[in-house]
Design a protein around this nucleic acid. Sequence first.
DNA 1: ACTCCAATGAAATCGAATTTCAAAGTATCA
DNA 2: TGATACTTTGAAATTCGATTTCATTGGAGT
Lengths: 143, 143
Amino acid sequence: MGELKKNFKAYLAAQGLKTTQQREVILDAFLASPSHLSTEEFYLKIRKKHPSIGYATVYRTLKLFSESGIAVERNFGDKQTRYEVLSDEEHHDHLVCTSCSKIIEFEDPEIERLQENVALRHGFKVLNHSLELYGLCADCTGK
Amino acid sequence: MGELKKNFKAYLAAQGLKTTQQREVILDAFLASPSHLSTEEFYLKIRKKHPSIGYATVYRTLKLFSESGIAVERNFGDKQTRYEVLSDEEHHDHLVCTSCSKIIEFEDPEIERLQENVALRHGFKVLNHSLELYGLCADCTGK
DNA sequence: ACTCCAATGAAATCGAATTTCAAAGTATCA
DNA sequence: TGATACTTTGAAATTCGATTTCATTGGAGT
Ligand SMILES: [Mn+2]
Ligand SMILES: [Mn+2]
Ligand SMILES: [Zn+2]
Ligand SMILES: [Zn+2]
């Protein structure tokens, strides 16, 4: 069993929560899906193979993923919350194309370091951050 | 008359829109208010002195401010849209305390430069960006 | 003052997020 | 394995900020 699945099950056990068939199905589907899907998009996807699973369950389970630490919520300007898998110590930020909605991930340790510096200068302890660059991707620049 | 008021009036004129009493009142109140208020918070504030002004008008006028370029919309994790005055070429990002909701503004040209580099590496043209550091402010670190 | 649109306020609507609740499932233990 | 004690689930209802509708009122040029 994958690391993430183990972590999630451990979280459930630790919280006195239960392993259910729905949670198993939703977790497998989540791990196999493209990143940055909204709750609605993900629900529609799951529904095809598992029509009996309700939207509320998908919604609640995605939140659980986030609480357990195996996923993170994202917001890219539109009003919808999006989710993506996140292994332990990874972290990345995003370029978001305002024309075609393409999302490009990037990591930049130097930016992260400078963010810490900013925080230090203000006696601030950073717990998490959000950095998105909005604009036109290479494909859309010419249009 | 202040630069911002001039700019806004120029925008109205250019768009064939009208200067109304409500817009005058709302603009003055906006310029005199603390930054980062949500639409609702700002409306409640205005309402005290001008009970006849409706929420819809405040909502629409804040959007107008944003379209005209004298203000910007912000989102700090909670679901509410917040507004703040923004003079011409200024730009800043935010530290947001997740404990007391305090908001600290900062500018870091080096971070901005690195962001441009990231974009360049991906053939991406940045039109705007969003950077918030969430965590505990100096006051809340000890609690 | 007349006329043409734009603006306004109240209420309705929208859409995503979140909650409610009765029915069903899971884990534990006798 | 069957009873017990909760937890989970699905459908529907609700919440809440954002946005729109629409009848009426208000600018501004003529
Ligand atoms: Mn990502
Ligand atoms: Mn600010
Ligand atoms: Zn694109
Ligand atoms: Zn604080």
